[in-house]
Amino acid sequence: MSAVIYASFFTLVSFDLDKENTEDFWWTDWNEVQRSRRAALNYGCRHVKNARGKSLHKLLTVRKYLYNLLVDDRHKAIYCYVPKVACTNWKRIFMILSGKSNSTDPLSIRSYVPHEEGVLTRLSSFRSRSFVLNEKLKTYTKFLFVRHPIERLVSAYRNKLVINSTSAADFKKRFGVDILRRYRKGDDAQNISKSGDGVTFAEFVSYLIDRRHDSLHSLNEHWALYVDLCYPCSIKYDIIGKYETLEEDSEYILRRIGANPNLHFPPFVTSRTGPLVAGYIASLPDELAEKLHELYKPDFKLFEYEFYN
């Protein structure tokens, strides 16, 4: 429905109708979308086990938990980034918004630059007293982007433990070797790759379930739950963006915070991961698939996603 609304909006613009009317159409429909998403989130926060996470007082006291929240004081905006949910492009945009780049085209910024430590301002890095941070959280426009939890997980698995790249090589050594040692049995255990290559999706999922059981906040940010990265039940986000409506939601955010009218989110490239997800789920034993669903249940419920059957 949202994609249709967005298309309709630009159809109206192309016919050069009254500007005020098209703006009213735009804001009314997207505000309604946001109200619906926030209502589902609030309901989930009250009723879903393990959804609430740390209190706001705890977050403000132990600043490390605010690491994923990026701050743009110029436009009074706070963005909680989630790896594998278009965060590279949104970090590029934040560099432009906050004056960390003179570029006007997000794609002109090399992809590794926004991820370098110190490039963007994190809420966790502020030395201000807690009430100052709390005031930012109360008054700034706060937003995050989410994606189907398992599609995001499959994307992270493929990107960090399957493909051949410099980044993947690092993850394979950090995580792949450990996963193989934990879950390879019998003769296969004698042939564990020192580079961490060859981790199956089932082994990866088993590792996640066991790690989460050991500690609620022990997963790497590329596969950690949204509730552990952005604390949506403790921080009241104004806008909940979704990967499925990425361009529409991004345009909504940029216009709301008063970004330069010429600044837009880069054109959306359809994910190649989506069509593969059902196959990865089918490769898991039923018991393991059920445990995976249970692991990410807070994210499913809070952001209105359904598990693959």
Rank of each mutant, 00 (worst) to 15 (best):
D286A: 15
N220F: 02
K160F: 11
E247N: 10
S218G: 05
C230V: 03
E32W: 11
S250I: 01
L246E: 04
H148L: 06
P261S: 06
C45M: 06
R127N: 11
N68I: 06
Y43T: 13
A224I: 09
L216H: 12
I93R: 02
V177M: 02
K54G: 06
N50Y: 14
Y237N: 05
I93P: 00
T11K: 15
P267W: 02
Y243H: 14
G241S: 04
L219M: 04
A3P: 00
T139F: 09
E290R: 13
L153Y: 08
S125L: 03
V154S: 06
V227R: 10
N68C: 11
K100C: 05
H264S: 04
P83Q: 06
G274T: 14
S36D: 05
I5F: 08
S125E: 12
T121F: 01
R129G: 11
P267L: 03
N191A: 07
S195Y: 15
A77N: 00
D299F: 02
S108N: 10
G118H: 00
N220Q: 03
K142Y: 01
S111A: 14
R35I: 12
L161M: 12
V199A: 02
S108T: 15
A156V: 07
E23A: 15
R127V: 09
G279Y: 06
E244F: 03
K185C: 03
T61D: 09
K172W: 10
E244R: 07
R110Q: 15
L59M: 05
E294H: 15
C233N: 04
R127C: 09
V132Y: 07
D16K: 13
N262C: 07
R182L: 07
A202Y: 07
L12R: 15
Y43I: 14
A224P: 11
I239N: 01
K291S: 11
N159W: 09
P298V: 09
K242M: 08
T200N: 05
H217I: 12
R256H: 01
K291I: 04
C80V: 01
D188A: 08
N21F: 15
Y6W: 08
V71P: 00
N42Y: 08
E32L: 15
S8N: 12
Y296P: 03
L56W: 02
L216R: 14
L12Q: 12
L66Y: 05
R74F: 00
D210F: 01
G186A: 04
K194W: 13
K136M: 05
T273H: 04
I209L: 01
Y308K: 10
K160D: 12
L12I: 14
Y226L: 15
N42S: 11
E221N: 15
P266E: 03
P261R: 06
I5T: 10
W26T: 05
A168E: 09
V132D: 06
S165W: 13
R181W: 03
S271K: 02
E244P: 04
E248P: 04
N134C: 04
R35L: 12
S206C: 06
L107W: 05
S55I: 10
Y81F: 08
Y226K: 07
I240H: 01
N89T: 03
F201I: 10
V4N: 14
